[in-house]
Amino acid sequence: MTKVLIYGGKTGWIGGKMYTLCKEHGIEVYNADSRIENREAVAAELDRIQPSHVLMSAGITGRPNIDWCEDHRPETIRTNVIGTLNVADLCNERGIHCTVYATGCIYTYDAAHPLGSGIGFTEEDKPNFTGSFYSETKSYVEPLLKQYPTCMILRVRMPISDDLSSRSFVTKIAKYEKVVNIPNSMTVLTELLPASLKMAQKGLTGIYNFTNPGVISHNQVLDLYKKYIDPDFQYSNFTIEEQNEILKAPRSNNELDTTKLLRDTEGIEINDILTAMDLCFQRMKKNLEAEGILPDNLPKEFKHKVHGGTGESLKK
């Protein structure tokens, strides 16, 4: 890996982290200026930079969440399908290794993969979740991406960082009034992103379930938040049916099989999700203490408003 070009590095969450990671490893790295929907501009930039590797994390997830995609379907297709294929296709024409940070939110528990069974979806299983248009576009593009011999597709799920980034799964559910309590595969970025860099360096291609092994529930995540970040925090649950009443599109819940990932990343530390999450919250606590946020300056929006509460810290 001699030179890296990142799509989604300027404004994207994962792309920005990968840019920093490349810098820390002394890798020559550039953030792309071209829009992935503009094939000619992407081609010109690839020819100008001449990277050995491309990290593709650009895409539309919607703001504040993927419900945005339900009402903006042409825009979502233009970026998540056409734009992603532009980058993969142009990289393949030039013999450039391309890593696409995709999603594992293309499955839902079913009869062959029951909730709580420990039977995860493999890289070969066909997507079975089309509840949201965002996930639907990802299901369209993945079978096409895997046809490119220079492309590696990493299925990220519910990504989590060591801070209170608005993009982190922890931050999102900590702000909800109620959460569902379903075990899911998740991606702890501190462990998995360095692994993705090493995988790209090795020239791995094809699809990988890019999550920590095992599953963790929403309640388990928030219990760790309460343990390490805010002991006064409270949360409550509701059912999937109740959740769907307030969303434009249902959400994917599943377990992904990580056998292939662990086999091809031997020697790279990837902890099971329960261990990885505990370590993540330990790092988060230290980071927030260093920033002066803990113990007394946690933003008010993280004080859960259970049962009509004010959001203020609870009295002990």
Rank of each mutant, 00 (worst) to 15 (best):
K126N: 12
K315A: 11
C69E: 08
K172T: 08
R73H: 00
P194T: 05
S57N: 12
Y176I: 01
V42S: 13
N65I: 08
S34I: 02
F169H: 13
M18C: 05
K316W: 05
L247N: 05
G116A: 06
T258G: 14
P295I: 04
I293T: 03
K17V: 04
S252M: 06
P299G: 06
N254D: 15
E136H: 11
V215I: 13
T61W: 07
Y30F: 10
Q234S: 12
L46N: 03
I293S: 06
T108S: 11
A112W: 12
G15D: 03
T84K: 05
A195L: 12
L192R: 04
D296S: 03
T190K: 10
D278H: 08
A88P: 02
E289I: 09
T61F: 14
D272S: 04
T108V: 13
P231A: 08
K126V: 13
V29G: 03
P295A: 08
E40F: 12
K202E: 09
K23N: 02
N287W: 01
P51V: 09
G12V: 00
R39D: 14
F302D: 05
A112L: 12
D230N: 11
C22W: 01
C22G: 02
L256I: 12
T61H: 10
E269H: 07
Y235T: 11
T79Y: 07
T258Q: 12
I229E: 02
D296T: 15
P299Y: 02
D33N: 11
C69T: 09
N237R: 06
E177Y: 08
D163P: 07
N184G: 08
V42T: 13
Y225A: 02
L274A: 15
R78N: 15
E28P: 00
N287M: 02
G8P: 08
G12Y: 03
D71V: 07
T137W: 12
H304T: 10
N253P: 02
Y235L: 09
R73L: 03
V188P: 01
D67P: 02
Y101H: 14
V170W: 05
I82W: 11
V42R: 12
L164A: 10
K202W: 07
T150C: 11
S166P: 03
G104E: 09
E266P: 09
V221R: 01
N184H: 11
S313D: 15
E266L: 15
H307Y: 09
V87N: 04
A200D: 04
V4P: 04
Y225E: 07
F133M: 10
K305G: 08
V179W: 06
K138S: 00
G15L: 01
P64F: 08
V306G: 04
G131S: 06
